[in-house]
């Protein structure tokens, strides 16, 4: 079976690189983008099986805005989103309601930064239905 394609959208090049290494080590094909715009471009061309998305990039809520946009778009709404963030500290967003609540946070799951490799892999596997 062909390995899944994962798109990382994060403005921190080091975290992107670290995440990429972890995922590539497991054989995934990893693509990266540094903001929403570049992410949308990549989406069109590669059609990823999973998106790993950072919340705060150019603006405080860029990731939130993008996730909502994707879930509203019939072409992309099926792609699971794993949100990776330290936003809890800065924006005061309350992360208590479960991820997946369409109206509230339209992503499949989220993890706090820094993410432990084994935790990241477990979540990725789960979202790709590989576990």
């Amino acid at each position: 079976m062909e390995q899944a394609k994962i798109l990382i959208i994060d403005d921190d090049p080091d975290i992107t690189e670290a995440t990429k290494i972890v995922l590539e080590n497991q054989g995934y094909s990893v693509y990266t983008a540094k903001d929403s715009e570049a992410g949308l471009e990549q989406l069109k061309t590669i059609g990823p099986d999973l998106i790993i998305l950072d919340v705060m990039m150019n603006t405080l809520r860029e990731g939130f805005v993008l996730s909502r946009e994707l879930k509203d778009n019939p072409k992309y709404k099926h792609i699971p989103i794993l949100m990776v963030t330290a936003a809890k500290e800065k924006t005061g967003f309350d992360f208590k309601p479960a991820a997946g609540d369409e109206a509230w946070l339209p992503v499949e799951d989220f993890l706090d930064k820094p993410v432990k490799p084994e935790l990241l892999l477990a979540k990725v596997k789960e979202l790709l239905h590989e576990s």
Partner: peptide, 21 residues
């Protein structure tokens, strides 16, 4: 917040080395 971002990146990188990936 900025420092947190840097620390997060440091820990992410160290994690990978630590896990012998």
């Amino acid at each position: 917040h900025d420092i947190r971002g840097h620390l997060s990146a440091i820990q992410s990188c160290l994690n990978i080395v630590n896990d012998k990936i």
